[in-house]
Computed example of a mutant assay.
Amino acid sequence: MPSSVVQSMRYNPDTHTLRIRYVSGIVYEYKNVPEEVFAAMKAAGSKGRFLNQHIKGHYDFVKVPTAHP
């Protein structure tokens, strides 16, 4: 999944939560994301573009605290 913006993504179908780890190391969880939206993001040629157009501003989110070495 090469992306200049998204390092990794994980989806929890039980809670409809999409967790995005950015290449900067910052992690956000987007709430109430339908599974088909996650599937479309996985299939998208540009994860960053999809994120900006279809996730950000469309779903509530929280920043996940991360441990720093």
Rank of each mutant, 00 (worst) to 15 (best):
P2D: 11
P2A: 08
S3I: 11
S4T: 09
V5M: 08
V6C: 13
Q7T: 11
Q7R: 15
S8D: 15
M9T: 06
M9A: 07
P13M: 05
P13D: 08
D14L: 14
D14S: 15
D14K: 15
D14I: 11
T15W: 06
H16Q: 13
R19P: 06
I20R: 03
V23H: 15
V23S: 15
S24P: 14
G25S: 12
G25T: 09
G25R: 08
G25M: 10
I26V: 10
I26P: 03
Y28F: 10
E29G: 03
Y30E: 07
Y30S: 12
N32K: 05
N32S: 08
V33K: 00
P34T: 06
E36R: 05
E36Y: 05
V37Q: 08
F38R: 00
A39S: 12
A40C: 07
A40M: 07
K42Q: 10
A44T: 03
A44D: 03
S46Q: 01
S46Y: 00
K47F: 04
G48W: 01
G48F: 00
F50D: 02
L51C: 05
N52K: 07
N52W: 02
H54P: 04
H54L: 03
K56T: 09
K56A: 11
G57D: 04
G57E: 04
G57M: 04
H58A: 10
Y59N: 09
F61I: 06
V62R: 11
K63M: 14
P65K: 15
T66H: 06
A67I: 13
A67T: 15
P69W: 08
P69S: 13
